[in-house]
Nucleic acid binder design. Structure first.
Lengths: 152, 152
DNA sequence: GATGAAAACCGTAAAAT
DNA sequence: ATTTTACGGTTTTCATC
């Protein structure tokens, strides 16, 4: 889908605060509320905007520990296989196939160290996993949802 | 801050769709709209909810390339230094200090390979960076904003 | 253990956007 | 139509008797 400048500004505003009303947005981009709604509906329908979510502090919900795990897999492991396997684990917040030594990188979030250990154990038990290498997150310095791309 | 069951259900609903009205949420948790608003206001004030954002498909905005970069730093590099440095780059969507061989892991998102290369070059030019190791993302398999913690 | 003040919380209703 | 403010009533908490 092709986006014009107004579309991009609307997306940027919704990234900044997804609860802006159509009138709020309209005031900032010089459009009427219905006109904004039409564009937003189109952006949703075409998959540019996939949804809206609250940004929650994981620690406030008791999720204090996270890690990035490099996955090494057996020869003929497909991305689809890795996706199905990693998606099943609720502790997985991100999963990517990557170039380099490892085959995949998995982002885990757990309640505490023992929970993380347990989740890691479950991940290692996947039949196609031959080896893992973990990086425990000591502190989250930057965590930008999707705003980065939109603003620049 | 202590969260009761209603708070957790409200947070989960806002993670599911940040544009639910207070009345919508109230209907689902058996509370009036003002009661929901009071709780949401408190959740925002205490930092449990940090904000609301649209979930945007990066590719739709022309951000087609991403990478994870392990940063190796000089002896007395502080997390604050790494934060300041990485935050300055608009391509950085995530930055973490980690245990293991590397000192930090940086999540980059760029328009294309050459843009990524350029951003990486800028990152490597930071005075405290001694070495980097990059993993180019081949495909994003799972990407869960914050829903994981909230739902379980 | 009972009692009464204080805090926390909810709902209805009205006002503002 | 939704958000926000204002008010009145109820429940919980907790210190004191």
């Amino acid at each position: 889908m092709r986006l014009d400048d107004l579309d991009r500004r609307i997306v940027a505003l919704l990234c900044e605060d997804a609860r802006f009303s159509y009138a709020d947005i309209g005031a900032k981009v010089a459009l009427s509320a219905p006109a904004v709604k039409r564009r937003v509906d189109r952006l949703r329908a075409t998959g540019v905007i996939r949804g809206y979510t609250a940004l929650v502090d994981p620690a406030a919900l008791g999720w204090t520990t996270e890690a990035f795990v490099e996955l090494y897999c057996t020869g003929r492991t497909t991305p689809a296989q890795i996706e199905r396997a990693t998606r099943r684990h609720p502790e997985v917040v991100g999963s990517y196939t990557v170039s380099g030594g490892a085959d995949a990188l998995v982002h885990l979030r757990a309640a505490d160290i023992s929970h993380l250990e347990e989740a890691l154990e479950r991940l290692r038990a996947e039949p196609f996993v031959t080896q893992t290498q973990s990086m425990i997150v000591l502190s989250r310095l930057v965590d930008r949802p999707a705003s980065g791309p939109a603003t620049s």
